[in-house]
């Protein structure tokens, strides 16, 4: 396929003989936004962690452009710079200010000029409405603000793909929106994104393609409209049904 940025072929991942992802295949085009949904424990986080080389895989190939992502190789840190990741847990560095959190990796890992990075960081912070927080410490921020900083921190590395693992799952409801809006804006700008989420309305709005995962396998995939309105498989129907409520009055 033309413009394929990320390609996963026959990936198998297991923990102590316990197979989590089975013969998994996925191609992601440049600029594509893919939402991955599925029941708890089906392997969504594991998939993202494999793509970022945080997990050793048992077989198969994960390729970014033409480079193989191998968690054990010496060049893995190079590849991780090209893949941004934001986790569910607030993972800012507590001993550094917001600005220091953001510019640490670009200056230390990519050896970029500190002034230039700081200017870019401030610009990005401004976009997510947090320019007044640059000298705050993470403990002084709300959950939603922390996640937006975490997104900015990943973006400042200029990644080619962004991975989001349930970044709003631990947030209070009133803070979910601000984080989702930030991600929508990224999608609008043409970023390539893989998003794991339980926010179905958001999934509909943001994605080019939805992937439904169960037991480490793709059960169904398709455009958001057709997937959400007319899921073909019974398992997808059942899963989507858990997000709906019957009227009782």
């Amino acid at each position: 396929m033309a413009n394929t940025l990320l390609k996963i072929e026959n990936l198998t991942k297991s923990y102590d003989g316990n197979v989590i992802l089975k013969d998994f295949n996925l191609s992601v085009r440049k600029g594509e936004v893919i939402v991955i949904i599925g029941p708890s424990g089906c392997g969504k986080s594991t998939l993202l962690r494999c793509i970022n080389g945080l997990e050793a895989i048992q077989s198969g190939v994960i390729k970014l452009d033409d480079e193989i992502i191998d968690s054990k190789s010496k060049t893995i840190t190079k590849l991780r710079q090209r893949v941004g990741m934001v986790f569910q847990s607030y993972d800012l560095f507590p001993h550094k200010t917001v600005l220091q959190n953001i510019i640490l990796a670009p200056t230390l890992v990519q050896k970029r000029d500190k002034k230039e990075v700081a200017a870019e960081a401030e610009q990005l912070l401004d976009k997510v409405g947090l320019s007044d927080k640059k000298d705050s410490y993470p403990r002084q921020l709300s959950g939603g603000q922390k996640q937006r900083v975490a997104i900015v921190r990943a973006l400042c590395m200029h990644p080619e793909v962004m991975l989001f693992d349930e970044v709003t799952a631990a947030l209070d409801p009133e803070m979910v929106r601000e984080v989702l809006d930030t991600m929508l804006e990224l999608a609008r700008q043409g970023s390539t994104m893989l998003i794991v989420t339980h926010e179905m309305e958001f999934a509909k709005a943001v994605s080019d393609r939805v992937i439904f995962l169960d037991n480490g396998e793709i059960i169904e995939e398709g455009a958001p409209q057709s997937f959400f309105n007319h899921p073909k498989t019974e398992r997808a129907q059942k899963f989507l049904h858990t997000f709906e409520f019957e009227h009782i009055k």
Partner: peptide, 16 residues
């Protein structure tokens, strides 16, 4: 543990 992981995810080496 997630402090290690978020540092690795940013491309930092073990010693960094």
């Amino acid at each position: 543990k997630h402090q290690y992981e978020s540092a690795f995810a940013l491309g930092m080496t073990k010693s960094q």
